[in-house]
Design a protein around this nucleic acid. Structure first.
Lengths: 163, 163
DNA sequence: GATTTTATGTCAGTCTTGTTGACTTTCCAA
DNA sequence: TTGGAAAGTCAACAAGACTGACATAAAATC
């Protein structure tokens, strides 16, 4: 590995370190929410649902499905628990009565706040430690790493036209 | 959320976008290996074991355990399959005969090559698209996001004193 | 030498979260 | 109006995490 190494930053070594950095960093990224979720008897699947329902209030199950990339049966189990526990409200669509529009209840918003506070604190500390230029680079690489279809969802979220 | 916003790059919006970028990017990050693994009847757990055995040939089970952060029962199930399939070799330690030292066989190295080629290609494309300064920032933020204990493992891997 | 600790492996059982298959309800278009 | 497609639900299963209990062997210690 690494012989001619055209540009220095594309050696196999550099790439491997990037791969390992993703692995270890993702563990840190999920560690804090995981602790909160465990207390409440939820898992990451619940966190993801809560996050995107919060981001896209009134979204349908099918839309959520394509964001999360799981089967509807898998998502349904998670949603059922959240609805039963009173964190999510499911309203039948007015124009299309097959659809269910999803909203967080006040309790749901409260849990969402706890989870995103924890995750934001970690992210803020990392951003502070790395500095503003590093943050821009971080986002650029991550965006380039996404599958095009997922990047569509990422860009479709509100509040990312500029910054 | 976001009122005074001390420094611009630390708004809740920026942090939230970083969180979602991590989520979507990690999906891309694992997508290519996942496809290869599925064909062979393996999962991410097998990939992780293969990756770190490749990186640390002769490592013991206990060491691998602390890197991967799973229980020995969980790791054992994975290792057993890899050993039975002839991808990993387990040698009894010479100085301490309780320990098992783990090595990839030629078949194991071949699979490792396939998996890491796929993952490196994705990473290389992302690095190219984002540029060298972005790559440095990417790594800085990820390293700052790790739990200190995991960062120890990350730094302990060979080949990362400089670059 | 006896005891304790460490490293590893195994069995059994549970939980989360993914899967597929079968089904109902609803909508829409031929 | 009827037949297909779409949205959602229920049931059953599999992977891979977990815990707890236990076995074995070897090293370390008293």
């Amino acid at each position: 590995m690494m012989s001619g190494e055209g540009r220095l930053f594309l050696t196999d070594e550099q790439l491997r370190k990037g791969i390992e950095a993703m692995f270890f960093a993702y563990r840190g990224f999920t560690a804090d929410p995981d602790r909160i979720l465990e207390e409440k008897g939820y898992g990451r699947a619940h966190h993801r649902a809560i996050h995107f329902i919060h981001r896209c209030p009134g979204t349908t199950v099918t839309n959520l499905l394509s964001i999360l990339g799981v089967t509807k049966q898998s998502l349904n189990r998670v949603l059922r628990a959240l609805i039963e526990d009173g964190l999510v409200e499911s309203r039948i669509g007015t124009t299309d009565r097959r659809q269910r529009h999803l909203y967080l209840t006040e309790a749901g918003r409260e849990l969402e706040r706890q989870l995103s506070d924890a995750q934001r604190n970690r992210m803020r500390a990392a951003y502070r430690a790395a500095g503003p230029e590093a943050v821009a680079g971080f986002r650029q690489v991550l965006e380039a790493m996404m599958d095009p279809q997922l990047r569509r969802h990422y860009n479709a979220m509100e509040g990312n036209r500029d910054e």
